[in-house]
């Protein structure tokens, strides 16, 4: 069924790369906006900073397992840095810079809040302790550029194959030459990053965090609404295009992938979180369970969306 060269492993890689980048962006936003400092200890930045490196890193390691000869002769992976015309080469360069930045960012957060590390650095390198905040701000700024690059490149990787897989090269809007997937994957990355760091982990660590940041429901609504619109545009555009793009869209909307799509992506990943946060705007708050629930929904839907798009990327008919 559908596209058969790239499978679920690639979908997982695209997903972890996106979510890791999104988690970094959430943490960086809290850092650079100063919100992090309004509360004595902000779990949202800590989670985003520490989890983004491992997420993207694990995704990349998994990718190596999807290689053929590159698995058996791993030194060939160095050749992948050489062909700048290939989006895959762009990706390996972006990740080679982004992952270390994420890990550094995580350390710079931990050094302030984790007692053992804090003690160690304070005693061995006190000059470093006093500079942690400015260094961390700098890493947040530079890292954010690479985070956006990571999330966007996962979309460009697919859309760059152009006419070979029409579903992946659908435009953002009919009259624009900008492809849809890089934009959709960026929005989805931020949405899943926010869902993971803020809704799930930060809420579990500090249940009242939702009440403390009053604009969070609105931010969610905007992101979810935007993602909804983009997914809708993708499938409408694909159906209109006919051929393999329409075939892929049909596969998703009423074919074998339809349950995964309507329940896994639309219901738990878009409709439910949207309702939870719309309710929160109206009533001023939502229950703890629904906050965490919407986060889990966002996180699961992100993976399923990537999987669907990969599998539904049917090659153009000859």
């Amino acid at each position: 069924m559908g596209q058969e060269s790239w499978g679920w492993l690639i979908a997982v890689y695209l997903y972890l790369g996106g979510m890791g980048a999104g988690a970094f962006l959430v943490a960086a936003f809290f850092e650079l906006s100063g919100w992090r400092y309004r509360h004595a200890f902000s779990p949202a930045t800590l989670v985003g900073a520490t989890v983004s490196g491992p997420l993207v890193g694990i995704g990349s390691v998994l990718l190596i397992f999807d290689l053929g000869a590159g698995k058996m002769q791993p030194w060939r992976i160095f050749y992948m840095f050489t062909h700048f015309e290939s989006v895959m080469t762009w990706g390996i360069w972006i990740l080679s810079i982004f992952i270390p930045l994420c890990l550094l960012y995580g350390l710079l957060e931990l050094v302030e809040v984790e007692p053992f590390l804090k003690g160690l650095v304070s005693s061995r390198a006190p000059w470093l302790m006093s500079r942690v905040r400015p260094i961390r701000r700098w890493v947040a700024m530079v890292g954010s550029v690479f985070a956006v690059a990571t999330a966007v490149y996962t979309g460009v990787l697919l859309s760059a194959v152009g006419p070979a897989i029409p579903l992946w090269s659908q435009p953002l809007l009919p009259f624009l030459r900008v492809p849809m997937l890089p934009v959709l994957f960026l929005v989805s990355a931020v949405s899943t990053g926010l869902g993971l760091t803020f809704d799930v982990v930060a809420t579990l660590a500090r249940p009242h965090i939702h009440d403390e940041i009053r604009s969070m429901p609105l931010i969610h609504i905007i992101l979810i609404g935007l993602e909804n619109i983009l997914i809708g545009l993708l499938f409408i555009s694909a159906l209109n295009a006919g051929g393999a793009a329409a075939e892929g869209a049909r596969l998703v909307m009423y074919g074998p992938l339809s349950i995964v799509f309507w329940v896994g992506v639309v219901l738990i990943g878009l409709a439910y979180p949207f309702v939870v946060h719309a309710y929160a705007i109206g009533r001023g708050r939502h229950s703890l369970a629904s906050g965490i629930g919407s986060g889990v929904g966002l996180v699961i839907a992100g993976l399923l969306l990537r999987y669907i798009i990969v599998v539904a990327g049917i090659p153009a008919a000859l």
């Binding site: 790239w6 999807d66 290689l67 053929g68 060939r76 992948m80 760059a160 194959v161």
Partner: peptide, 16 residues
């Protein structure tokens, strides 16, 4: 000797 088996070429060929 250079191919890593990423299959990007397989996906990108419009003639399959």
């Amino acid at each position: 000797k250079l191919c890593v088996g990423c299959k990007y070429c397989e996906v990108a060929c419009p003639y399959q």
